[in-house]
Computed example of a mutant assay.
Amino acid sequence: MSTLINEIDARTRLAGANQMELLLFKLGTNEIFGINVFKVREVMKLPELTQIPEADSRIVGMANIRGIMVPVVGLKRSLGLGTENDVQGDIGSGANPYLIVSEYNGSLQGFLVAGVDRIIRFSWSAIKTPPAIVRENNKGAVTAVTMLEDGRMVLILDVEKVLNDICPRTDDDVFASMTIVPELRSKCVLFADDSSVARMQIRKALDRLSMSYVIATTGGEAWHKLQALADQATAEGKERVDQIQCILSDIEMPEMDGFTLTKHIRADPRLAHLPVMLHSSLTGACNMEKGRTVGATDYITKFDAKMLGEKLALHIQAGNQQVKKAA
């Protein structure tokens, strides 16, 4: 399976075409789950696990992966779908569990799954925000859904939500290094992210900076809101939008990815002046280069509150200087 997972830069080129790849897997239930391949570092047959005394029940053990100790999350129990049996015993009984290794907050974590199916490519326009009844199931960990050709639904997981529930970071840890910038007070940011954890972190950061904000949960929703602001500016006889001062966008989102959203913004003269910062947990030089190619102002790695505040101050103040010169 690992040979099917392309290099990060190759997958970034997919994102630039408003496409993504999903790794499909199962948890021993009827549901089909998916995880964005961009968030996956490796897939392997489940190695031997070392049990951790008094660990959270959702952590089924530690795996030694080439000298790196990786905590293994029992994904089935984390989603409230039951509990895994004796996972090491399952291997001996003919079962074939897998470990999906992902990276979050600079460290590796493994997800124990009952089986891995295949990798399949979708257009982001085919990835939809789930209905409320789906969002409320599985402890809010389903960030999007899509349909296979045979009509079966794929539930796409919010990796950040699953891991944050197990090991939440306190606000003091997350925001202690932020610097309050008086010039940002009352400035407005439109931000878009499909992860509930990311939206909460961004909202808290902007609150601490005394900024206002407009929230979107998908790239498509962000674009609709920006078009509404642009149309309002036109109706008021203005050449450009002035209700917001910056746009902060995730890269991979349902309906429209951040690269495509940035291209749309740069193509609309009423919006083109706004700084656009791409905000993503995805690494790779090609990400940054692709962002520059489509016109992004900057690229910020999730979630660094200090950097977010500094970059907002830098680009909003630079934008204000440009407006003054134009006037």
Rank of each mutant, 00 (worst) to 15 (best):
S2Q: 06
I5Y: 08
N6I: 03
I8F: 11
D9K: 11
A15D: 03
N18F: 06
L23P: 02
L27V: 10
G28S: 08
N30K: 15
I32G: 00
G34D: 03
N36I: 00
V37Y: 07
K39I: 03
M44V: 05
L49H: 07
L49N: 01
I52F: 02
R58H: 09
V60A: 05
V60F: 02
G61F: 04
I68T: 14
I68N: 13
P71G: 11
P71Q: 08
V73E: 14
V73Q: 11
K76E: 10
S78I: 00
G80K: 14
L81R: 00
G82H: 09
T83E: 12
T83Y: 14
T83L: 03
E84S: 12
N85S: 12
G89D: 01
D90Y: 04
P97A: 14
V101D: 05
G106H: 04
Q109D: 08
F111S: 02
A114W: 06
V116F: 03
D117E: 14
R118T: 10
A126D: 14
K128P: 01
K128V: 02
P131K: 12
A132V: 08
I133H: 11
N137L: 10
G140F: 09
G140D: 05
A141D: 15
M147N: 01
E149R: 07
R152M: 07
R152G: 01
L157M: 07
D158G: 05
V162P: 03
N164R: 05
D165C: 02
R169A: 10
T170F: 02
D171L: 00
D172A: 14
D173M: 15
M178H: 05
T179E: 11
I180C: 10
I180V: 14
E183P: 01
L190K: 01
A192I: 03
V197W: 11
V197I: 06
V197T: 15
V197A: 01
M200S: 15
I202C: 04
R203V: 07
L206Y: 07
R208P: 12
R208Y: 07
L209S: 11
S212T: 15
Y213L: 00
W223G: 00
H224T: 15
K225N: 13
L229D: 12
D231F: 00
T234A: 14
G237W: 02
D242E: 12
C246Q: 08
L248H: 11
L248F: 09
L248K: 04
D250Y: 13
I251H: 07
E252N: 11
E252M: 09
E255W: 09
E255V: 13
E255G: 12
D257C: 15
D257M: 04
T260N: 07
T260V: 06
A267L: 09
H273P: 01
L274K: 03
S281N: 03
L282I: 15
T283S: 09
C286D: 12
N287Q: 02
M288L: 08
E289S: 14
R292P: 03
R292E: 06
V294F: 05
D298A: 13
K302Y: 00
F303K: 04
L308P: 03
E310W: 09
Q317D: 12
A318L: 05
Q322D: 05
V323P: 01
V323S: 11
K324A: 15
A326R: 09
